[in-house]
Structure formats: C-alpha cells, structure tokens
C-alpha cells in the first residue's frame, strides 16, 4: 500500500491540469458566484446597501422593457444574419469545391474579412456607410441615377440592414472556409454513384452531402449562433446601440447598465439571466443537433 502511494507518476495527471483549473475557477466561477450574491443586494451608484434584498432585482427584470427590447434586437440580428451566412457560405463553398486555376488566391482573398478584428470591421463599414464621403451612397447614387443621401448608421429603418450587412460580410467567409473543408471530405464515390443513378442536385445534397457535412455544419452554426447572441463590437463601432436604444443588444445593454449607470446589483441580475438563457439555448441546440450521443 505504501509502495503504491509512493509511485512517482501517481499524481502526475493532477499536476498537469491543476493550473488550468485554477485559472478557470478564478475567471469563470468567481464572477458567476459574485454575480449571484450581489444580485440579491441593492447596490447602485448612490447606495451601497449590502443587505439581502431578495428577488427585488429579478422582479425588476420583468418590467424592464429596455431589457426585453435588447433581447429582441439580439434575436432579430441572429435569425436574419445566421441563415444568410450559412446559405451564402455554402453556395461559395460549392463554387470553389471544384478545381480551377487561381483557386487558392481567391480563397485567400475571400478570407480577409474574417481575420480582421470585429471592431475594425465595424470601423471600416462606418467609413463605407458615411452618408457624404462613403462609397456605398455613391454607388447607390450611380444606380439610382440621382444623388442618394442615406444616413445608414442614424436612420432607424437603415441601421439594421447596415449592421447585418457588416456582420454577414465579416463572417460569411468563416462559414465558407469550414463548409469548404467539410464538402471536400465528402466521399466522392457516393455523390458520383448518386449522379449515375440520376439523382437531382438537391436530392443528392439532401440525402448524401448534408448528412455527411452535418456534424461540422452544426458546430459552425453553434459557434456563430453563440457569437451573434453576444454581439457587441460591430454594433459598438457602427451605432453604439443608437439611434436612441434602437440597436441595443443584450451585451450592449448590460454594458450600459454596469458601466454607464453603475447599477451594480441590477447588472448582476441581468448577467445571471443572460448566462441562464445561454445555457438553456445551448443545451437545447446541442441536443437538437445531435451533437451529444
């Protein structure tokens, strides 16, 4: 028994993982715990009342229209941008699936938007969308035949198209790359057999290609869906949530509550709600997509 305990490699696996676990607990679990405690108090800019306030903050969540609107904005962006990125990315992947001269150069150029920082992507489109000096209005003016002066980042009916355009521009290449890799791995003899059998393109896609690429596609959708749910940078660069609170997403709203209004306890409650929502959605999505056996 003692000889066994002295085995020199006995604790090796724990020494290996201990530092990572420690950091994850510090950065991951501490904030969670802190938020939970603080969300039951009433701390804000004026008041540092640390006595137990019960569900006061959580009750307020339900009557906070701005919160629910921000959630709606987030979902709106997600349900529009995600399918566009997916379909466009898939179409592009098909376009570049077969060999053609210069294919590698095309792919390298198309990937550029994905590797620049989201905040820079936002800034770039801010320049592109400028009503007076930006190229977008100029191009539209040519097509339209007369001078167009669209206020893309200010006009309430144009801000969403602007945000979604920017988002799609930056992340479609990401979908494209992943789906291209997945499509290249599909067993060619299967699609060829289907072709010989006379199956249509869509039939082949539905019954042979899609099942083969689904594991990869599901993960790509999950990754992008998660990122879209917490979208912050692009909107911060383009509109800062404006005009008014028109493009405020859940991330922007939480930030504003915490760092502009200093509603400490209330922000903690929102953070908790966000984590809860995300956990529920993720668990549902992972199950639904068959990622867990």
């Amino acid at each position: 028994m003692t000889a066994k305990a002295l085995h020199p490699d006995r604790n090796f696996k724990y020494w290996l993982i201990a530092p990572a676990i420690f950091l994850l607990l510090l950065i991951g679990l501490f904030p969670l715990f802190y938020s939970l405690v603080v969300s039951f108090m009433r701390i804000d800019m004026m008041d540092t009342d640390t006595s137990f306030a019960g569900l006061y903050n959580y009750k307020n969540l339900f009557t906070d229209d701005r919160l629910w609107w921000s959630l709606a904005h987030t979902l709106l962006i997600t349900v529009i941008a995600l399918p566009i990125e997916l379909v466009l990315g898939l179409a592009m992947a098909y376009l570049f699936l077969e060999r053609m001269p210069g294919r590698q150069v095309f792919i390298a150029l198309l990937v550029l938007p994905t590797i620049i920082s989201p905040i820079v992507a936002g800034a770039t489109w801010r320049l592109m969308f400028d009503n007076k000096y930006g190229p977008i209005n100029q191009i539209i003016s040519w097509v339209w035949g007369e001078r167009v002066n669209a206020l893309w980042t200010i006009n309430p009916s144009l801000v969403y198209p602007a945000i979604i355009f920017c988002e799609v521009w930056q992340w479609t290449p990401f979908m494209f790359l992943i789906l291209l890799a997945a499509l290249s791995n599909v067993d060619k003899s299967q699609t060829e057999a289907a072709e010989i059998d006379g199956a249509s393109f869509f039939r082949t896609f539905r019954y042979i290609v899609l099942p083969a690429i689904w594991p990869v596609m599901a993960i790509a959708i999950l990754i992008r869906g998660l990122d879209l749910f917490r979208i912050f940078d692009i909107i911060w660069a383009l509109t800062q949530g404006g005009p008014g609170t028109r493009t405020e997403t859940i991330s922007i709203y939480t930030y504003v509550q915490g760092f502009k209004q200093f509603e400490t306890s209330y922000t903690a409650a929102i953070a908790f709600l966000v984590i809860l929502l995300l956990t529920v959605i993720c668990t549902w999505a992972i199950r639904r997509m068959g990622l867990v056996k």
């Binding site: 950065i27 939480t254 953070a271």
Partner: peptide
C-alpha cells in the same frame, strides 16, 4: 467557452 464576456466582465472589473 460559452460564457458571454459581458456577463463576467462586470464582476471581474470590481475584483
């Protein structure tokens, strides 16, 4: 990894 940054940044800031 799924943890939204905005949910942890506030308590971290205070820490």
């Amino acid at each position: 990894r799924m943890m939204p940054p905005v949910a942890i940044v506030f308590p971290l800031f205070l820490l």
